[in-house]
């Protein structure tokens, strides 16, 4: 059974632009999938639909056989706890230190202090930032900030990790580190869906690549490359 399934999904925004046009694909548990394409192709829309920030105009999105659009509003937070999200702009709070930034993911689940103190050093260790847990975001490089963002996404041990242009604002060396971490997370069984237009990384990893252009899937290849 696929873990993520888009069935004939279309999404048109209010101003009339078509972001996705009848898109269908499946992702199995434990897969590492790149969604690639030029800016405005619809990559971020796939991420937004998956975390239910947006609703499709037609079609179905199933995650673990559950129709995402049909999840009642009062249970959306439970659904989101199963999906970790990493953004291009990191979305870190400047007023909180690294430990606190990661802890927010557990605080919202009403985890107790003991649990938070146990989990956070482990996830920070996983992304190689355990020595900087009491520093503030302004004291970190772009790559380190993105690793904090990954640690936060991993804090509640999600089944799926979605990264939207996670290497878009960091230097090539840091991008390699970020991707290495994502590979490590994937090797532990977490499904990874990474929207990117970073050709170097896609070509290096040789994972499944779904190429999307003007809202339509133009290719879907395992062990693929950025250009097909």
């Amino acid at each position: 059974m696929p873990q993520i399934e888009f069935i004939n999904v279309s999404k048109e925004y209010e101003h009339g632009s078509v972001a996705l046009d009848n898109v269908s694909f499946q992702i199995d548990p434990g897969e590492f999938v790149f969604v690639v394409g030029p800016s405005g192709a619809g990559k971020s829309t796939i991420v937004k639909l998956l975390i239910r920030e947006e609703f499709p105009n037609s079609g179905q999105i199933l995650v673990n056989d559950e129709d995402v659009s049909m999840i009642p509003q009062e249970h959306v937070h439970d659904y989101r706890r199963k999906i970790g999200v990493v953004f291009q702009d990191f979305k870190l709070l400047e007023s909180r230190n690294i430990f606190e930034n990661v802890a927010i993911a557990l605080e919202v689940t009403d985890a107790n202090d003991h649990e938070i103190k146990n989990v956070i050093p482990n996830v920070l260790n996983m992304v190689g930032l355990s020595s900087k847990m009491f520093m503030y975001p302004r004291q970190l490089s772009g790559g380190e900030k993105q690793r904090v963002s990954i640690a936060r996404a991993l804090a509640h041990e999600p089944d799926i990790l979605v990264a939207d242009e996670a290497t878009g604002m960091i230097d090539p060396d840091s991008s390699d580190t970020v991707v290495e971490i994502l590979e490590k997370v994937n090797s532990l069984g977490t499904t990874i869906l990474m929207a990117t237009h970073d050709q170097k990384i896609v070509d290096k990893l040789k994972k499944r690549v779904i190429r999307i252009e003007t809202g339509k899937i133009v290719s879907d290849k395992k062990g693929g490359k950025y250009r097909g």
Binding site: H77, R80, R81, I104, V108, T109
Partner: peptide, 8 residues
């Protein structure tokens, strides 16, 4: 951020 990480 709270919303995205699953705050009710």
């Amino acid at each position: 951020i709270m919303k995205l990480v699953g705050a009710s």
